[in-house]
């Protein structure tokens, strides 16, 4: 590999942002999953029962465990697809932050009760 090729390769690596984008969007998805599962467990008795993974903790155990699984699976898939790419970050960061703010709002009971 020539010096020029090496320089180009290092330069390209510096601007690769796919794995960062994957981590960011997955965190947004995981956060939203916490709020969504909490909302579903609150509205449906069937979901509430299904979310009891550990009886002393009740549905909270299933809601949070399921959300963590969704987050990690989303992260693994997005990382696998994007890790060596250069991604247009603006829509990804916007989506991740919107999902995060929505999850903050939807976990607040007076807002969740509107649904």
């Amino acid at each position: 590999m020539s010096a020029k090729d090496r320089s180009t390769s290092v330069h390209a690596q510096d601007f690769r942002n796919g794995d960062g984008a994957a981590a960011l969007l997955a965190a947004g998805i995981g956060s939203f999953a916490v709020a969504l599962f909490a909302l579903l467990a609150d509205k449906s008795n069937a979901v509430k029962s299904a979310m009891i993974f550990y009886k002393p903790t009740g549905p909270l155990s299933g809601v949070t465990t399921s959300a963590i699984i969704v987050w990690l699976v989303a992260w693994a898939i997005l990382h696998w697809r994007w890790h060596s790419s250069v991604i247009t970050l603006r829509p990804i960061t916007r989506a991740a932050l919107i999902l995060l703010v929505l999850s903050l709002l939807l976990t607040f009971p007076p807002i969740a009760d509107l649904f």
């Binding site: 995981g30 959300a67 987050w71 903050l104 976990t107």
Partner: peptide
């Protein structure tokens, strides 16, 4: 309690992502 029990779980997700991104970049 209904807010606390769920909103707290946004914290480890967010900071784990921040740590992973920082370690990478």
């Amino acid at each position: 309690m209904e807010w606390k029990e769920y909103v707290a779980w946004l914290v480890p997700i967010s900071i784990t992502m921040a740590a992973a991104v920082f370690i990478r970049y």
